[in-house]
Design a protein around this nucleic acid. Structure first.
Lengths: 347, 347
DNA sequence: AAGTCGCGGGTTACCGCTTAATTTTATCAG
DNA sequence: CTGATAAAATTAAGCGGTAACCCGCGACTT
């Protein structure tokens, strides 16, 4: 319900003019005289008139709302992204419908179906780790639904994308570990499906190669569900530690994986970085007060949300069908803290 | 845009019947014969028909969306609450519009205005710390807008509320500190305006009194903006430490305040709990891996969101005006970890 | 003085769906 | 076979806002 419930007709009656004149006046049309406009605006304010957006949308064939799909809102990185999304969307008159996949492909499709059902004007999506088939999105995109990918993108769909510089983040992070004296560096990452996995892995490999360190494939562990349940990571750690080439450092590839790994290392009673060093992607503001202060790769979440939303709205509001798309890469930042210090310092 | 764009008329044309028959069939009206219903349903599926919610809302005079006002989404407690809200709302066919006050009264009013402008069916709100006047909400409530308060409530408005057992949480937390041997316990809390402040303060006082500890009012520090900027807390700490009755423990009253206090104590180079013990309200899953593992009071955020939304929807969908309201109190839980251990153990 | 243009504003139809009122069709007792 | 009644389907009137189209009037042309 729209409170006040005053409509354009009430204003028209009040002023003795036609509803369409009011509509036009409110839209500052040239067809309406200045004094009439002034009267209408004054009256609208006096009666506290608020346009009925449903009616507008129905007439206009849009909904002034955009759908968002993320894995979980309860994650520093994504809540920062959403923050950025909302800041732009609200200022442009759009509202935002947030849905969560919990890393499930089923849920992702279900959410998108729900969103198109709610008739959104555009979609912002970060794919679930489980997703390896984006045909349903291809279909929607071909039907004209504006889509912007962020974070976890798909290269099968030619549309706008905003990502962090995952390669550089991973490369720099790994390099820092190497510089600190570590050579046996494990990598715990998300599902093979995710775009971020491939990019971060490439950065990791490149850093090792550059420093002439052989890559031991058994030190690379994948988590199909991005560490949603800690069992995934527990397994990975178990395998790493019962390994003849036991690692001395771990580079973790996503927020959830990083924090869960830290917890599990604690449970195992391992000293960090004494027994094992840790450096990972995470956006938590608590990195500095963790035990130990956690070296981390930070992604500009808020910026990412803003940029993605700006791109999306510009496609939505474009007069002509958009065929030129852009992939924007935002810088990542590596913060070195105690958890990745050289071993000799920590003993 | 609703993709597919098939309307009730398309189905009607396809089947050679009238649009209204289709509408009724889809609603399983008794006015329509069974065979026709079956035909319509089959055809709707075949054409992938999706009702236009804008049209429905326009006709029905509702919007099937609910507004949410929180201080920040980028906060473990609130993101858990929102998680709970969305889980219920989506399953009941509502969508959720989230707005943030950043602890500003101005922004809070602006958000609510924006939400009513978007014509929401109901409002879920946790007041900003700055708010001490809820007249604008009273007005909307009197006009019939269903409102459910959660977390930070106002007793000036008689409506449904869901809160954590802040009194018990604070009482138990303080008692734990006392049992650990601390007697000079400071309390850093939010603005005096917030309901949670009063309740938590009451629990703190009660625990001290029960143990015959005099209450030193100068050990109680308020943060008007709930610790939004760390300067507030920096000041509070500065005053506490340049005090002839210097505290040996701090009990912090909200998520942001707790984590910021921890960071600042680190910066000051203080050992926890050796130099000062810390116990605070927070919902972060990282409590255990903080330095030191942080004793905390946990609130059932997800549950709170769920309950509040269930209450709200039941008011929205009630046939009769609701006049009986309920305040639901959810249990809090105190987790004792290293940061509040007895002093003798930590030295 | 008749034709024409543009301004200010009114009429009307429609977006997609719902529903009260009504008409048509089927059903059945007598 | 008729009239009454129930069942099934249609018509039409909006919900609130918009926009294409229309019209009346004074000013300007010639």
């Amino acid at each position: 319900m729209n409170f006040g419930g005053v409509t354009i007709k009430d204003i028209a009656k009040e002023l003795g003019i036609s509803p369409s004149a009011v509509s036009k006046a409110l839209k500052d049309s040239h067809e309406i005289g200045e004094k009439t406009k002034a009267l209408v605006i004054a009256c609208a304010q006096r009666l506290n008139y608020q346009p009925n957006l449903n009616a507008q949308s129905l007439k206009q064939g849009n909904s002034k709302s955009i759908g968002v799909v993320v894995s979980t809102i309860d994650n520093q990185f994504f809540s920062q992204v959403i923050n950025g999304i909302e800041s732009v969307a609200h200022s442009r008159g759009y509202n935002v419908i947030i849905t969560q996949t919990h890393e499930s492909y089923e849920l992702e499709m279900q959410n998108v179906r729900h969103l198109t059902f709610r008739s959104i004007d555009g979609l912002l999506i970060s794919l679930s780790t489980e997703t390896n088939n984006v045909d349903y999105l291809k279909y929607l995109h071909s039907k004209g639904l504006p889509i912007v990918f962020f974070d976890r993108v798909s290269d099968e769909i030619n549309t706008n994308k905003v990502v962090a510089d995952n390669y550089a983040g991973a490369y720099n992070a790994t390099t820092q570990l190497i510089k600190a004296g570590y050579r046996k560096i494990a990598h715990i990452t998300s599902s093979v499906n995710a775009s971020i996995t491939a990019e971060r892995l490439k950065g990791y490999r490149a850093a090792l190669q550059q420093h002439h360190i052989d890559i031991d494939e058994s030190l690379i562990k994948y988590c199909l569900h991005g560490g949603k349940d800690s069992a995934e990571i527990e397994n990975a750690l178990g395998e790493l530690f019962h390994h003849d080439n036991r690692p001395h450092a771990i580079f973790t590839a996503s927020d959830r994986i990083t924090t869960t790994t830290l917890s599990l290392l604690h449970k195992l009673g391992l000293k960090i970085p004494g027994d094992i060093a840790l450096l990972g992607f995470t956006n938590t503001q608590l990195a500095e007060v963790l035990n130990p202060p956690l070296s981390s790769v930070y992604q500009p979440g808020f910026e990412m949300g803003k940029k993605a939303t700006e791109m999306l709205i510009s496609v939505i509001e474009s007069r002509y069908p958009v065929t030129e798309f852009e992939t924007m890469v935002l810088p990542t930042e590596v913060f070195i803290r105690a958890s990745s210090q050289p071993q000799r310092l920590s003993t």
